[in-house]
Design a protein around this nucleic acid. Structure first.
Length: 228
DNA sequence: CACCAGACTGGATTAGACAA
DNA sequence: TTGTCTAATCCAGTCTGGTG
């Protein structure tokens, strides 16, 4: 758990539930209660801190310096919501049997993805996109990804988006450098407007290491079934 | 004692009524 | 149409009581 905390730094009860589930070989996340009991015990031991920050729903959790030898994160930064979502995504990847790490093993000049998930023979560069970037920025990012995909045939790119961001990303994949990486890029509309993961199910294709080239750009059929 | 289902809680969100 | 107030509703997080 603390190895994971050390990577993601800050998370939610949701993230804790999925990673505990993974460590317990459970089919899904552990119950809210189990997660709560674990968190409370760790809090008593001074290993975990909890905080509620009004604009966000839910409780933020982070490991104390005592637990991971890193200073506490600043919960009021603008990027905190994004970091929380990345942590929950990583929890889901880990639960699906993948290994998760930060994207630090890359050349200096290249774009740093939000995280890197690897399973046997496949590595996903994962981007969590809650708000769309400028078009010109995508061109730069995609060029960087193209360079990395050319070097490593096992690499894929995965964009986990809100509906609005997903539209822009798909569009950007139809031009310039985007066209070159589109066949190895998977775009999923995963978040509602509020940035929360929509549904308990895994979308088809996501976390699937066996399908090497997931069809790009098309919104997933039947997405409404697990949207709620 | 661990575990689970379900109850409870406080804050956030939504809907409706009404006035300006 | 816009703003404001209130009540109703929702929900994540928390707690409790029963069970094995």
């Amino acid at each position: 758990m603390f190895e994971w905390f050390s990577i993601v730094r800050v998370t939610t009860m949701e993230g804790v539930r999925w990673v505990l589930g993974a460590l317990n070989d459970a089919a899904g996340p552990v119950s809210k209660n189990q997660a709560f009991v674990w968190v409370r015990r760790m809090q008593e031991l001074g290993m975990i801190e909890r905080a509620r920050v009004p604009p966000f729903r839910g409780t933020m959790l982070y490991a104390t310096p005592r637990a991971i030898k890193k200073r506490a994160p600043d919960l009021l930064r603008q990027t905190t919501r994004h970091e929380l979502m990345v942590s929950v995504i990583s929890a889901r990847y880990i639960h699906a049997g993948w290994h998760w790490d930060r994207d630090l093993d890359k050349a200096e000049a290249l774009h740093e993805a939000d995280g890197v998930a690897s399973s046997d023979g496949v590595t996903d560069l994962v981007e969590v996109e809650l708000t769309a970037k400028r078009r010109t920025r995508y061109e730069e990012v995609f060029r960087s990804f193209r360079e990395r995909l050319d070097d490593d045939p096992e690499l894929r790119v995965v964009y986990l988006c809100t509906v609005d961001a997903g539209r822009v990303v798909r569009d950007a994949l139809t031009k310039g450098a985007g066209m070159d990486i589109a066949s190895r890029t998977y775009v999923v509309d995963l978040f509602g407007r509020d940035g929360a993961w929509i549904g308990d199910e895994y979308p088809a294709g996501l976390f699937d290491a066996t399908s090497p080239k997931v069809a790009a750009s098309e919104p997933i059929e039947g997405i409404g079934a697990w949207m709620r």
